[in-house]
Write a protein that binds this DNA or RNA. Structure first.
Lengths: 345, 345
DNA sequence: CTGTTAGCGCGTTCAT
DNA sequence: ATGAACGCGCTAACAG
């Protein structure tokens, strides 16, 4: 019934078997209502008997499209990626599109290579997770771009569709939670230098604080750890840490613990993302959940709408992030403000 | 220079501009040596001026191929997936192939849908991460399959290319490590029922033990936790746990800790996979590293070899997994063999 | 309602 | 060494 390399029946085979022309076969497939009931049945039967499946290459060549979208990501290993990909894939396959993965590793060479791929027509559109236009300085009119939507990381200076979490609002909420617990000295451990996302989170944090206390970071566990070490060289310490992301928070907690402090008893720390393992660490991490699946789905939805023509002006879609309260934050217990370095190790 | 929707030059444009026939243009691209030096230069120049890039659909239609491979996975969220995907993608793009993601969620419907996709010719081959042939009972002769290679999870009853870690050897090694530490009572917390991978790991474990002590599990954190709870109903307990995977180990450790025990002081636990967060939990997890990237690369390599014709009989490629010693295992301290339930909570 | 025809853009004989 | 012509498999006019 469904052997595989079964000579792959073509539309001609079906037409011949059904005793009609190929045009009729084509119609029965795409516009069934425009073909007589009787012949439709014959054709349908013939299709079933031959196991016919339209050749995508031929059809796409004719239709000048590919029914695929290319997803450009700087890192498949990013803990947020799988969730987003699931959403992307789900929305795409639901509408008959395939999703191609393009891992750039931040490299310009790879970006160019994928772009060349795009220009061969193997993909109709682009989902960009990198936070910048592939190959900086691409034309200057937005019309010069291929259909594209950015997700997770906004792209500056261009009026491009974007969907991601509302970082500022979420960060403000997280910070306010810390404040409501009684914290007055909260440090923000930033993400990679120049990260627009980190800047937005910082802005949200700033809105909830009268004075900012900024610490550099890079979004990695090691970066979080290093930030804490640097902080301990100073004379004063915050009572709570609002971290750019969960990885940073994990690093912060690790460093704190290895210095002999307890979390949340001695210091509260809150992360951002709610990565899959956020609730498996000790203490389980209070954080802001990023609606990954939804981000993926709506980003793909917007792109496909553009591809199929039902879409007007670019829009920024900011989704809500939920605060997930777990164990890593509590009321400040003592005034550790004057804690000196070298508590213990 | 590289505007985007730049009318997309066709081979005719290039031919016209270079003053040659399209056949010559085609040759200059695929068999440069068969064209005169002088004309080659003209054509090359014309290509550069027009920014010509061959249309993939047309070319693939003509060549009856797609230059894409479909990766069927039961779960993008599996912690092992990203690493494998990176390897897959790397090897594919290096050889000019694109990789398409097919998330089945274990559903037959999705599998069928992706298979139909395959049969449209949008993909030339398949990488199967599900551990079974898509749509069980597919023909009976291996020749009826499309080019395919299984990775991570072997497919029984068929002579299919497979690449994964050598579970038995690795499990034996892990168990022997526990034994070398002095443990005599080691329980194996199994994976999902019927998992061939879990059976192999169990077999390796058995080889290092005189008597098996089996506990059901399902490969999830919750499953690991539950396994421990069930164990505490009994009168005797092991001094160490060899877990099917890291998630299970995380659950085991969590349950042990919440019962007031310490790991590794009271119980040693060892996992399998070395997922990204294995070293961030407390205690950091001793485990067997699965060579994900390498698995992905060699699986894709084999598939592409088959697609390009340089390949003979199917082969099983078993890669070595390294034991990664961290903090979750130590020598058994006391004889907890008669520990009763309800230690504390 | 149905069949005929003309390409979509390219690779490839087959002549020259 | 190069060009003319055919066809991969399909959809979209255009007739009838």
């Amino acid at each position: 019934m469904d052997d595989f390399p079964a000579k792959t029946a073509t539309i001609d085979d079906v037409a011949k078997l059904a005793g009609v022309s190929i045009a009729t076969v084509s119609r029965t497939i795409s516009k069934p209502e425009k073909v007589a009931e009787s012949t439709r049945k014959k054709v349908t039967a013939a299709i079933a008997r031959t196991g016919y499946v339209a050749n995508a290459m031929a059809r796409n060549l004719r239709l000048k499209r590919s029914q695929m979208v290319l997803v450009l990501t700087p890192s498949i290993a990013d803990p947020n990626f799988p969730g987003i990909l699931i959403g992307l894939e789900k929305a795409a396959s639901k509408r008959g599109y395939g999703v191609l993965i393009g891992n750039t590793d931040g490299g310009v060479t790879q970006e160019e290579s994928y772009l060349r791929f795009l220009s061969t027509g193997m993909a109709d559109g682009l989902i960009v997770l990198t936070g910048h236009l592939p190959v900086a300085g691409w034309g200057n009119s937005a019309a010069a771009f291929p259909p594209l939507v950015a997700a997770t990381r906004p792209i500056d200076h261009f009026d491009i569709d974007y969907v991601g979490v509302n970082d500022m609002v979420a960060a403000k909420m997280a910070t306010e939670y810390l404040v409501s617990l009684g914290h007055m000295h909260i440090a923000y451990i930033a993400g990679p230098a120049g990260s627009a996302v980190s800047e937005n989170r910082q802005a949200g944090y700033a809105k909830a604080m009268s004075a900012e206390w900024l610490v550099d970071g890079d979004g990695t566990i090691e970066g979080g750890r290093a930030a804490v070490e640097r902080l301990f060289i100073r004379d004063t310490l915050p009572t709570a840490f609002f971290c750019f992301n969960d990885d940073t928070a994990i690093g912060v907690i690790g460093a704190l613990k290895s210095r002999g402090y307890r979390v949340p008893e001695d210091f509260s720390v809150i992360g951002f993302d709610d990565i899959p393992y956020a609730n498996t660490i000790t203490p389980s991490l209070t954080t802001v959940r990023q609606p990954r699946l939804q981000i993926g789905e709506t980003a793909m939805g917007i792109l496909l709408d553009k591809l199929t023509g039902n879409r007007d002006a670019p829009s920024k879609r900011l989704l809500h992030g939920d605060l997930v309260v777990r164990e890593s934050c509590t009321r400040p217990r003592r005034h550790l403000l004057s804690a000196k370095r070298g508590a213990r190790s």
